[in-house]
């Protein structure tokens, strides 16, 4: 799982860029107060699902297919329910393996 960059990484730029925006002010408050930010995960899979981005990117599956049109969103929200049916439909459509162990290792 990719990790979230540390808050000081945000501050490098946002100390100058849109420093007054309310959401940025919140980030700055966390940084100045030495309080870790608790990011809310928008996309999450249960622990018994093994998912790897690398293979999907290698097959040129567009990001939007799962994550929705994130490039147009101000606040990212979930557009698809990440259910087993959602995964299987796409696997069948692209002739990807549908063996149980593909995801449930």
């Amino acid at each position: 799982m990719a990790s979230i960059p540390s808050a000081d990484r945000c501050v490098y730029c946002h100390d100058y860029i849109k420093a007054d925006a309310p959401e940025i002010v919140k980030v700055m408050d966390h940084y100045n107060g030495d309080k870790p930010i608790e990011w809310v995960k928008v996309f999450d899979l249960p622990d018994h699902v093994w998912f790897n981005h690398k293979r999907h990117i290698a097959k040129d599956v567009p990001c939007q297919k799962c994550h929705g049109p994130v490039e147009t969103m101000d606040v990212v929200s979930r557009t698809n329910e990440f259910s087993m049916g959602f995964c299987l439909a796409c696997h069948q459509e692209n002739e990807a393996p549908t063996d149980c162990w593909t995801c449930h290792t």
């Binding site: 990790s3 960059p5 808050a7 309080k35 870790p36 608790e38 990011w39």
Partner: peptide, 10 residues
Amino acid sequence: SQNVISFVEA
């Protein structure tokens, strides 16, 4: 947990 806690400084 659905939250991810990040470092303030790396």
